[in-house]
Structures are given as C-alpha cells and as structure tokens.
Design a protein around this nucleic acid. Structure first.
Length: 259
DNA sequence: ATGGTTGCCCCGCAA
C-alpha cells in the first residue's frame, strides 16, 4: 500500500499538476493539505477517471484537508478532537482497507508565525491536542499513519540554512520539543527510519529563488505507530515535482507499506 | 538585501 502526503497549496491551482503526479506515482492513498476550498466547491472533476474515493474536510479560502483512496474508506472523522471552538479544517481520519486495515490520519499543523503570539499559542495547543488523539488511537493497536504538513523542522539537518529559521515557529525549541513528545509516544519518523543526513527537503519557498538555490526545509512527515512501522518497505520524496509546471511549494512524500 | 512569490476570490491576509 503506497501512502503519500502532498500539500498542494490550492486544489484549483493544481488542477493539472496534481493529476499528472497521481498518474506517474500511482499512490493508493493520498493525504492532501491546503485544498483551500469548501467541500461544496471542491472540483471533483479534476480527479475523475483516476480511481480514487475522495473525502474532504474543507474551509473557505485557506486550510482544508482531504483523503484520496483506491481502497474503501471507513469510519471517517473530520476535525481534530479536543476543542469544539476550533473551526480550522486541519485534520481528517479514515480507515483504509487493503490487504489489511490501516488508520490514516491526514493533518495540516498550524504554521504558528509570528512567534511568540496568539498564532504560536494556537500551534502549541494544537500539538498538545494531537498528542492526546495519538495516545487514544495507539490504544487500538491498529497500524496508524499520521501524515501531512507538520510545519516542524525537526532538527538543524532538516534545513539548508538552519540559522535562518532559529527564531521561526517551525524550528523554535518549544516546537521541536512538542514534535519529540509525539515521537516519544512510540511513533517512528518513516523518512528517518531509512535515510540519514542533511539535504533532504519537502518544501522550497516561492520567494527569492529558494528552489533554484536548493534552499529547502523538511516539514512534511509520516509518523508510524509500532504496528505500521513493522510494515514499512520503502520511503521517498518526489522532489522533481517542484521543478514541474506551476508547482506547489511542497512536494509529495510517500511510504510503501506491506499492507 | 527587512527583499521576494503565490493563492484565495474581492484585495488584504496567510504562508
């Protein structure tokens, strides 16, 4: 089961690039972030004929997440539990049934800038809520995959210019500590389970020629429960997508599970 | 070098 995460930065803007990548990469399951569309306005025709079931958790103008699956999707949950006041569309869960059932949790973690400030407080509170949700799901002992745009640079080696991110909400010590608390629950960073060292990125800013200079960061992650980590076959980053026509500022990252 | 670019859809805000 090939499972990918892709922050597309607008489904309407990616009406050509998204299906082109799907045809080339042939993932079974995809978590999309920043669809920037309501559920009603989601252009389903963009994905017609590609064989995916689609569930969306959208919002007008910004945020918004979705799951695509070639296998049946069951028990869909929209929204991160733990705060009934939170209206931001950043979390979607479903169980995908292939050779075996895998719980897929797609997420778009808050950016948090500027820090300090209310947006950073929201980021840290959201990470605490995610921690609680992960604990709840781990108790099921199902294979779990938590994937998406975490807006977290886990370590200095995950940025081309770590000094430029020192004061940024994506790399502040409190952000990294909250990310480590997720890992300490027993989750595995799938990419780091297979690839060591610097120079592996999933995001390059549109500004200042970041792609041409390879000034990137690794902020899109797949975290695996122990039962999912046992099934891990392969990981990859589809870096070439960033050099295509009208690209997102993120590229897809994926795993292949024996499931 | 306090810049630069993109997407949303009504133009300023988020990233």
């Amino acid at each position: 089961m090939k499972i990918a995460s892709f922050n597309i930065n607008g489904i309407k803007a990616r009406a050509e690039a998204l299906p082109a990548w799907l045809k080339a990469a042939e993932p079974d399951v995809v978590a999309l972030q920043e669809i920037k569309s309501t559920d009603e306005a989601f252009p389903h025709e963009v994905l017609d004929g590609l064989g995916y079931q689609i569930v969306t958790h959208g919002q007008k103008g910004f945020n918004g997440v979705a799951l695509l699956s070639r296998f049946p999707l069951e028990d869909v949950v929209c929204g991160l539990p733990g705060d009934d006041e939170d209206v931001q569309a950043r979390w979607i869960e479903a169980t995908v049934v292939g050779d075996r059932a895998v719980r897929i949790c797609g997420l778009y973690l808050p950016n948090g800038n500027p820090a300090p400030g209310p947006k950073y407080d929201y980021k840290l509170a959201w990470m605490a809520r995610m921690h609680a949700r992960v604990q709840t799901l781990l108790a099921t002992e199902e294979p779990l995959v938590f994937l998406g745009d975490y807006n977290v640079i886990p370590q200095d080696e995950d940025a081309a210019k770590p000094e430029a991110w020192r004061e940024d909400a994506l790399a502040l010590p409190q952000t990294r500590a909250a990310f480590r608390r997720l890992l300490h629950l027993g989750l595995t960073d799938a990419f780091r389970a297979r690839v060591a060292g610097p120079g592996h990125f999933t995001f390059w800013d549109y500004q200042a020629g970041a792609w041409q200079r390879n000034n990137g960061i690794r902020i899109d992650h797949l975290l695996l429960s122990p039962q999912a980590a046992d099934l891990l076959r392969e990981v990859g980053i589809d870096k070439e997508v960033r050099g295509g026509e009208k690209p997102s500022d993120h590229v897809p990252i994926w795993i292949d599970l024996n499931a």
